[in-house]
Computed example of a mutant assay.
Amino acid sequence: MFAIVRTGGKQYRVAAGDKIVVDKIDGEAGSSIELGDVLLAGDGSELRSTDGLTVAAEIIAQAKGEKVIVFKKRRRHNYRRRNGHRQRHTILRIVGIGGHGGGEQRSADTAEPAQA
C-alpha cells in the first residue's frame, strides 16, 4: 500500500518501511509522529478513500543539509557579499499507513499474517 502525503509544502510518495528526508519537524529522535495530510492512497492500481487516513512515522534523526553559498556581486561598485545556509532536515521512517481509530493498519512488521 502506498500514500502521497504533504508536509513542508512538498509531496512525498511513501509506503511502509520507507525512509524519507523532509523539512524540519519538531521532535526528538525515536519519537513517533502522524502525518495527517494524505492526498492519495492506494494499493497497486486501485485507489482508496483518504477520509481519516493517516501515515504513522518515526523520527530517525534531525540533520542538516549541505551548505549552499549565496554570493552577491555588483560590477564596478566594490560590492561583494558572501553568505552560507544549511537547511535543517528530519529523517523519517514510515511505520504504517492506516485509518485513524480502528481502520486498517499495514506496516512493515505485518507483511505476513500471523499463524494461529
Score class of each variant (00 low, 15 high):
25 I>P: 04
2 F>N: 00
2 F>I: 13
26 D>P: 00
12 Y>M: 02
79 Y>C: 14
51 D>V: 06
68 V>G: 04
66 E>H: 14
97 I>W: 02
91 I>R: 13
5 V>K: 09
26 D>I: 04
87 Q>R: 14
31 S>C: 03
16 A>N: 10
94 I>M: 04
74 R>F: 00
34 E>D: 05
76 R>L: 09
53 L>D: 04
7 T>A: 09
75 R>N: 12
31 S>R: 08
5 V>I: 15
66 E>G: 15
7 T>K: 06
111 A>G: 11
62 Q>G: 05
37 D>W: 02
94 I>D: 04
65 G>D: 14
80 R>P: 03
88 R>C: 07
37 D>G: 00
25 I>K: 07
8 G>A: 02
18 D>G: 03
7 T>Q: 07
70 V>S: 06
74 R>M: 02
102 G>P: 03
81 R>L: 06
112 E>W: 09
106 R>C: 05
11 Q>I: 08
64 K>W: 07
42 G>A: 03
25 I>R: 11
4 I>K: 12
5 V>M: 08
87 Q>I: 11
64 K>F: 05
97 I>T: 10
89 H>P: 00
74 R>C: 03
76 R>M: 10
37 D>F: 03
43 D>A: 12
106 R>E: 11
12 Y>L: 04
31 S>G: 07
50 T>Q: 08
36 G>C: 00
6 R>W: 02
86 R>P: 11
78 N>C: 06
58 E>L: 02
15 A>L: 10
74 R>A: 07
18 D>M: 02
73 K>M: 12
22 V>I: 15
70 V>C: 06
71 F>W: 09
73 K>V: 14
14 V>S: 05
13 R>N: 14
53 L>W: 09
70 V>A: 08
30 G>C: 10
65 G>F: 13
66 E>I: 12
90 T>F: 05
82 R>F: 15
68 V>W: 03
111 A>Y: 05
82 R>I: 15
96 G>P: 01
10 K>W: 09
78 N>H: 13
1 M>W: 01
63 A>I: 07
46 E>K: 15
15 A>W: 01
100 H>L: 02
40 L>A: 03
115 Q>L: 13
93 R>E: 10
45 S>H: 13
103 G>E: 10
55 V>D: 00
33 I>H: 00
45 S>C: 08
71 F>P: 10
91 I>A: 03
49 S>L: 04
103 G>A: 07
92 L>G: 01
67 K>P: 10
66 E>W: 07
48 R>I: 04
72 K>Y: 02
44 G>T: 08
